[in-house]
């Protein structure tokens, strides 16, 4: 597997040196992004995101839970990612891998720090709050899971129905309306190969890249960043990519409804 990566890296660098990408995209083009909401009607909210050949499903569930001791009046937000073994020959069944934990935590940070969900409104009574679970199911892996998972999660939240609550119990079959969201978080992930920066890396590009950076934004703020891989970014790189992220996020936000 690793050897194939080395071969792919060589041919990736040769193509990039000519100022092109293997699939014909420009350096700062996204692949086609599609969102299908209510993919899983049993869940309180759900969406399937296609980003090129990457397919990620997000499901939202509510439960009643005990709040964290340091935040007794706030609801619980919990994000988990599964690299489902049917998505790639490199995903193995078993306990969560570091990659799946990183994916879940980066998506979580973008949503949490934007304060798009008012967790204070999830307080029910003394010692009881609502818990909102975001489950990210990676079903087909062709690179850039961060952006595909973030889009799926945000799209699922946008169609999430609030369950009716009676005497501290959830009545799931009845809804009191949609989950209120104050803003939309969008992430943009870039790969760096030598000095070239690419938006929305495909799997081949990820396998040949030196470094990666994910920038989550709301229309006003940068709300989460994660740099990965051994390759370095310069200060100038990062500021430039932040500007591009704000700009590219507009297009993605328009499909988040």
């Amino acid at each position: 597997m690793e050897i194939v990566n080395e071969l792919k890296k060589d041919s990736l660098k040769r193509i990039l040196a000519q100022g092109k990408r293997a699939d014909g995209r420009q350096m700062l083009d996204y692949r086609k992004a599609t969102l299908q909401q209510n993919a899983i009607p049993n869940a309180e909210g759900s969406a399937l995101c296609h980003l090129g050949n990457t397919q990620v499903l997000a499901g939202i569930k509510f439960d009643v839970a005990t709040p964290f001791a340091d935040r007794p009046t706030e609801g619980v937000l919990s994000t988990n990612a599964e690299l489902v073994p049917l998505a790639s020959s490199t995903f193995e069944p078993g306990p969560p891998s570091p990659a799946s934990i990183e994916l879940a935590r980066v998506v979580d940070r973008g949503i949490r720090s934007s304060n798009c969900i008012d967790l204070k409104s999830f307080a029910l009574e003394e010692g009881k709050v609502l818990a909102l679970y975001i489950d990210l199911y990676v079903l087909d892996y062709d690179g850039n899971l961060f952006d595909a998972a973030s889009l799926a999660a945000m799209s699922a939240l946008l169609c999430t129905r609030m369950p009716k609550i009676e005497e501290g119990k959830l009545i799931r079959k009845e809804s009191t309306g949609k989950l209120p969201l104050s803003t939309k978080t969008v992430t943009c992930t870039f790969a760096k190969v030598d000095s070239t920066k690419l938006l929305d890396p495909s799997l081949d590009e990820e396998q040949g890249m030196d470094g990666r950076i994910t920038i989550a934004t709301t229309p006003q703020h940068v709300c989460a960043v994660q740099k990965g891989g051994w390759g370095a970014f310069t200060q100038k790189d990062i500021l430039e990519l932040v500007d591009i992220s704000f700009d590219k996020a507009k297009g993605l936000r328009s499909i988040l409804q």
């Binding site: 996204y30 086609k32 992004a33 599609t34 969102l35 299908q36 909401q37 209510n38 993919a39 899983i40 759900s46 969406a47 399937l48 296609h50 050949n53 397919q55 499903l57 079903l139 087909d140 799209s155 169609c159 297009g251 993605l252 328009s254 499909i255 988040l256 409804q257």
Partner: peptide, 14 residues
């Protein structure tokens, strides 16, 4: 064709 899962009831695309 390229494999493509269809699950939901509403489509948004860019």
């Amino acid at each position: 064709k390229e494999a493509h899962l269809v699950l939901g009831d509403k489509f948004n695309s860019q």
